[in-house]
């Protein structure tokens, strides 16, 4: 294996042309997989030195542009009131543990597309855009289209996730992320990200290989529980050693109810 740490995106694109080359961001997923012998890339292209991948900026349209190399800790530390970014900040706070949050990046999480990861669920709920770039240019892909399957995304060879764009969400809406995991800090068994005002928009994780998006859900308890029951019945939740599909179906209505209830508290505040 060889290792390169280019200082610019252009150099990175070139480095990624090589056979079986991969980006290295925080390494919090990639190095773990390498240590377990699950992957052994021929080349690692570290994104650590690329300034263009850093920084969090407010865009003219009110959305927040989060550079791909922004760490979970940096997102968790955001104090924002707009529902979209607030949802991301809340989500980042429940990803793993402090040491992982200190170096794991939003770009890495998005590119990795672990079906149990937290950011993808929140990004789908927030109607975020994933900005990806390569030598041939930049595209912006809606989060709901970006995640394609288990560890599968719309990224093409030698494309880099450069940023995530998070729209503010409806005026006065609140946000919440509800995560169920076997022990604290662990990957989710099931999770619900909610942006809620008069109606709720949801991202739901654990019920398909990619997050499911629901929109225009009524915010009464009955409507939420009903939406949960309907989704539980129609989806194919993961069925694994961490939890059965039946359990995931069983808790979904309540998770949705809780996420939206918490979001609405934020909305009123």
């Amino acid at each position: 294996m060889d290792y390169l740490a280019p200082a610019t995106l252009d150099d990175a694109y070139r480095a990624l042309e090589a056979e079986d080359a991969r980006c290295l961001a925080g390494g919090q997923s990639l190095v773990a997989m390498m240590n377990l012998g699950l992957v052994s890339p021929a080349r690692l292209v570290s994104l650590r030195r690329i300034e263009a991948l850093r920084g969090i900026d407010l865009q003219p349209d009110g959305s927040l542009r989060i550079g791909a190399m922004t760490t979970h800790a940096e997102v968790a530390a955001l104090t924002v009131s707009a529902a979209g970014p607030a949802l991301l900040a809340q989500t980042a706070r429940v990803v793993a543990y402090p040491a992982v949050r200190a170096w794991g990046t939003i770009g890495g999480s998005v590119a990795h597309a672990d079906p149990a990861a937290d950011y993808p669920v929140a990004l789908v709920a927030a109607d975020a855009l994933i900005e990806v770039s390569s030598a041939s240019g930049t595209r912006r892909i809606a989060a709901r289209d970006f995640f394609r399957g288990l560890f599968e995304t719309a990224l093409e060879k030698a494309e880099i996730v450069t940023a995530v764009l998070v729209p503010p969400g409806a005026q006065g809406a609140g946000a919440a992320y509800e995560k169920l995991s076997p022990v604290a800090g662990d990957f989710a068994i099931a999770s619900v990200a909610a942006i809620a005002g008069r109606t709720a928009r949801l991202g739901v994780g654990g019920y398909a290989t990619t997050p499911i998006r629901l929109e225009g859900i009524g915010v009464s308890d009955d409507a939420l529980l009903e939406a949960g029951r309907a989704l539980a019945a129609s989806s194919e939740p993961s069925d694994d050693h961490r939890a059965s599909a039946a359990y995931r179906r069983r808790v979904l209505p309540e998770l949705i109810r809780r996420a939206v209830r918490t979001a609405l508290i934020g909305a009123r505040a």
């Binding site: 740490a5 240590n35 570290s46 030195r49 992982v100 170096w103």
Partner: peptide
């Protein structure tokens, strides 16, 4: 600690410490 921040040294490549 990497620059004073917590880090898993098992998930940090030595080459990438810089």
């Amino acid at each position: 600690l990497l620059d004073g921040k917590l880090a898993r040294s098992c998930l940090t490549l030595a080459a990438d410490v810089g």
